[in-house]
Amino acid sequence: MRRAATWLLAALPLAAHAGDPGWARLPGGTFESVLRYEDARRGVRVAPFELMRTPVTNAQFLDFVRRNPQWRRDRAPRLFVEPRYLSHWKAAATIGPPARPEQPVTWVSWFAADAYCAAQGARLPTWNEWEYAAAADETRRDARDDPAWRERILTWYSRPSNTALPRAGLQAPNAWGVQDLHGLVWEWTDDASALLVDADNRKQGDADDTRFCGAGALSMDDRGNYAVLMRVAMLSSLAARDATAHMGFRCARTVVR
C-alpha cells in the first residue's frame, strides 16, 4: 500500500505552463508515416501536441531520481529496469565523470522514461508524433523527399558508436524548433511495444504464423526512409525494461484547448 502511494505521488502531474521555453508546439494534421500500416493507408491523424525541444539530459534525470528515489538504480525493481539501468553514472545519485550532466540521458528503460514524463505532467510521444516532428529539417516541415536530407541522417547512423555523446541541444533546431531528433540518440516512444516488426517475426512454421493477430503487418517498402525504419527496428527489438547505451527519450504533452 505504501509502495502504491509512493508511485501515485510520483505520477502526480506538475503544473504545465503555456509557452514553456523548453517545449515546442506542433500543430499536427494528417501525416504519412513511413509505417504503411494496412489500416492507415490514407495517412495518420496527429493531434496538436507539445514536444520537448531537446532530449532529457543526465542532469534532468538526476533531478527526477532525487525526487523519486524509487527510481534510483539501486532501488528500482528489476521488473522495470534491467541491470544496466543508469550504469554509466558514477553512483546511484551522482552522474559522473565520465558521464556529463548536459549529455542526453541513456541507459534508461521505457518504464523509467514513462515515469519521468509522468512526473512532469507529460507523457512519452507516440511513434506518429515523433516521426512527424522528425520529418522536418531546419527549414521544411517535411524534408523527407530530399535525398540530401536523407543522406545526412544516414551519415549519423554510420558514425562509430564508441565516441562520447555530444551534449543535448548542440544541433540547429528544425522547422518546429525541435533539436536532436536525429544525430544524437535513439528515443523511446510511448507505443514502442506497438511496433510489431521484431527480429522474431520470421516465418518459421505455425507458431510464428500466428504471432500477430489479424491484419496489421508492416510493409517497409520505402527504402529511402531506411534511417527512420532503423529506429522502428530498434524500438521493436526492445522490451520495456531494456536499456541501451544510445537509447534516450524526450517527453510530449497533449495540447488542451
Binding site: 521488473l79 507505443d191 511495444s193 500477430f212 493477430c213 489479424g214
Partner: peptide, 19 residues
C-alpha cells in the same frame, strides 16, 4: 510491458498483438 506482450490498436477497433 511487464508481461512482454506487444500490441497495436487498429483503426477498426481490432488489435494486432502477440499471443
Amino acid at each position: 510491458g511487464v508481461l512482454g506482450i506487444r500490441y497495436r490498436a487498429l483503426a477498426d477497433g481490432e488489435f494486432n498483438h502477440t499471443s
